[in-house]
């Protein structure tokens, strides 16, 4: 399926935009991770990469719906 992914910080630079449409196989956060990793290998070089679904940190086994708000959360550095 095709999902819309919001990207912030360094992940925005890597994906090339604030919101990117992405083809993924499977339907879980873990599946999305695999698709991201193969399309954007630079993401693997980050200290960490969390994925948020509907503005909550999501585990890899969480299922993704096409209507969900999905965001990449590279290492945070607020404060």
């Amino acid at each position: 399926m095709i999902v819309k992914v919001k990207a912030f910080g360094v992940s925005r630079d890597i994906l090339g935009g604030r919101e990117v449409e992405l083809e993924m196989s499977g339907n879980s956060v873990g599946d999305l991770r695999k698709s991201l990793s193969s399309q954007f290998p630079k993401l693997d070089k980050l200290n960490s990469l969390f994925i948020a679904v509907n503005q909550e940190y999501a585990a890899d086994d969480k299922a993704i719906l096409i209507s969900d708000e999905i965001a990449l959360i590279p290492p945070v550095s607020g404060g």
């Binding site: 910080g9 360094v10 965001a71 959360i73 590279p74 945070v76 550095s77 607020g78 404060g79």
Partner: peptide, 13 residues
């Protein structure tokens, strides 16, 4: 402030 720096999605360049 310590937890904010660890969990809140804010980024600095």
């Amino acid at each position: 402030i310590d937890t904010l720096k660890q969990t809140v999605p804010i980024w600095k360049r």
